[in-house]
C-alpha cells in the first residue's frame, strides 16, 4: 500500500463522522519498502490538488521520511527536487505490514502483505 492510498483513506465506521478525527488514520507498527516507479509529472500535478498535504507531511515525518517542505511550492513544476521527493513519498513508499488506527473511534485497520483491510463488521456499517 502506497502512502497515496493512506492519504485517500478515512475511517468509515458509520458513527465516526468527525472529519477532524477520522482522518488521517494513525500508522502503527509499520514496515516500509521503497519500490522504484517511473515519475509522471501530470499525475503529480493532479495529486497535489487531491492529497491533504498537511496530513502527508505529518505522516511522512512520523515514518522518518524527510525532505518534503512544510508547504507546497508556489510553482511545483519548476521545482524538480520537490516533484521527485513527492513522487518518492507518495508513490514509491509502500507499507508492507502494519496498522492504521482511527483517532476518533479507535477502529484498527490492518495492512498485511501490502494490502490494507478496510472491511467493516455488519454493525459498523
Amino acid at each position: 500500500m502506497r502512502l497515496l492510498t493512506h492519504n485517500m483513506l478515512q475511517c468509515h465506521v458509520k458513527k465516526c463522522t468527525d472529519p477532524a478525527l477520522n482522518f488521517p488514520l494513525q500508522l502503527q507498527d509499520i514496515e516500509l519498502e521503497q519500490v522504484e516507479t517511473e515519475e509522471n509529472e501530470d499525475l503529480l500535478l493532479n495529486l497535489i490538488n487531491k492529497v491533504d498535504y498537511n496530513a502527508l507531511t505529518t505522516t511522512a515525518a512520523q515514518l522518518g521520511l524527510v525532505g518534503l517542505p512544510n508547504a507546497i511550492p508556489k510553482d511545483p513544476q519548476a521545482d524538480p527536487a520537490f516533484m521527485t521527493r513527492l513522487h518518492e513519498v507518495l508513490l514509491e513508499t509502500n507499507i508492507t505490514q502494519g496498522k492504521m488506527a482511527c483517532r476518533g473511534c479507535g477502529h484498527v485497520y490492518t495492512i498485511k502483505d501490502g494490502i490494507p483491510n478496510m472491511l467493516l463488521a455488519e454493525h459498523e456499517i
Partner: peptide, 28 residues
C-alpha cells in the same frame, strides 16, 4: 483476498473493501 494478492504482486495498488463502503475520502 485471493484476487487482491494477484493484483498486488503485479505491482498495482490493492485494497480489501466492500463496494458498499469503500473508505476513501469524498470527491477525490
Amino acid at each position: 483476498w485471493g484476487l487482491l494478492d494477484i493484483t498486488n504482486r503485479r505491482g498495482f495498488e490493492a485494497m480489501q473493501a466492500d463496494t458498499l463502503t469503500l473508505g476513501y475520502r469524498p470527491n477525490r
